[in-house]
Amino acid sequence: MTQKDKPAIQIGSVESDPAVSIEVTKNGPYRVHGTPPLHVSVITQNSEGQSWSYQEGQAFALKDGDMLCRCGHSKNKPYCDGSHLKAGVDLTETASFAPLLEGATEIDGPTISLTDNETYCAFARFCDNGQRFWNEVQMPGEAHVKLAIYEAHHCPSGRLMVWDNATRKPIETAEPASLSLIEDPGEGVSGPLSLRGGIRVQSASGESYEIRNRQTLCRCGASSNKPFCDGSHASVKFEDGLNK
């Protein structure tokens, strides 16, 4: 890959080892390059019934070149078993290659601000804690700042980002590259494939999407923003059977 061809990296994000990446195959599954860890990640709730943390579940072995289902119909999830060939699910990529921040709105608070691109919402609902993320950012006091940062960092899709008003830089935490299969017992559904740690996602066209610390890829086949999750798994009641 030449310097000219290198994908954009979102401000505040750190690219993973280039040997690790996800390739979106045309009308087919995700091809994993490298051997990042893959495990189930269960959304757990607090005493108020809101999404609060993740509990690590079953781990899955990955070999370089393994295929992961993105049509939602494989009988061998999370791996592809070829079901997309007969499932009749339209897996055409529709997401923009533009930086996520180009479509984001901004809300400013006393010491921190937020950016929010709703198109990438994965419906994990960590943002509903406290007075809700959008209000917490605007409230003075360290407790509100800490909660807002916590909520943003638990947003798996990267839709939400918190910015330091003094430096005008995002408050992000570098993480090792990892993949997780989100399970959401609160909604009784299975969620997207979560990518953390700046993993590159390559379109079937060969072009790479912007590299970001937090991303979520559709596993149910119903997203209108493929390959990224848009929360459709909740409305179609997608279940992968991995958290039974």
Rank of each mutant, 00 (worst) to 15 (best):
Y79G: 11
S74K: 05
Y150A: 12
V24F: 04
P37T: 00
K77D: 05
V89M: 14
L217F: 07
G34D: 10
G72A: 09
D164E: 13
S21D: 03
P29Y: 00
A59Y: 00
R125N: 10
I43Y: 06
D108V: 15
K77Y: 08
T119D: 14
D184H: 13
V42L: 04
A177H: 04
R132F: 14
A166F: 12
P18Q: 04
G198A: 02
E136Y: 02
L179A: 09
A152I: 03
E23A: 11
G197K: 06
S51K: 00
A8V: 08
D5V: 03
G221S: 06
D64L: 09
A152R: 02
I211C: 11
K146N: 13
T111A: 14
A104I: 02
Q55A: 04
D108A: 15
D240W: 03
S205T: 14
T44K: 11
F97A: 02
R196S: 06
R219W: 01
C80Y: 03
F126K: 01
L85W: 13
L160T: 02
P29K: 03
G130W: 03
S41A: 15
E151L: 08
D230P: 04
A98Y: 00
V42M: 12
V162P: 08
E106T: 15
E56C: 00
R168W: 05
N27R: 12
A148N: 07
E106D: 07
Y150K: 12
R219S: 01
H39L: 02
D90S: 10
T216V: 02
L242A: 08
A104N: 04
A177T: 00
S53V: 00
K63G: 14
G198I: 00
T119V: 13
C71K: 10
T94R: 13
L38W: 03
P36I: 04
N76K: 14
R31S: 11
R70T: 01
D5G: 13
N213H: 09
G188V: 07
C121I: 00
D116T: 06
S13V: 02
S41D: 11
E118Q: 09
A152D: 01
S203C: 02
L179V: 09
Q131T: 09
F228C: 07
Y120W: 14
A204I: 00
D240L: 02
T173D: 15
R132W: 14
T119I: 13
A234Y: 00
T2M: 03
E151S: 10
A174M: 06
C218R: 00
L114N: 07
A148V: 03
E56Q: 09
L147S: 11
F97K: 01
S13E: 09
S16Y: 08
V42S: 05
F60E: 04
P29S: 11
F133A: 07
G241S: 13
L91P: 14
Q202T: 10
I112R: 08
P37I: 00
L242R: 10
E142T: 12
E239F: 04
Y120H: 11
G82I: 05
A122H: 08
V24P: 07
W134E: 15
T119H: 10
L114A: 11
P176R: 14
K77G: 01
R168C: 11
K4P: 12
C127F: 11
T92G: 14
H144E: 10
N117P: 11
Q58G: 03
G103R: 05
Q50H: 13
L114T: 05
L100Q: 10
W163D: 07
K63S: 15
V162F: 09
G158N: 05
N129H: 07
C229Q: 02
A87D: 13
V145R: 14
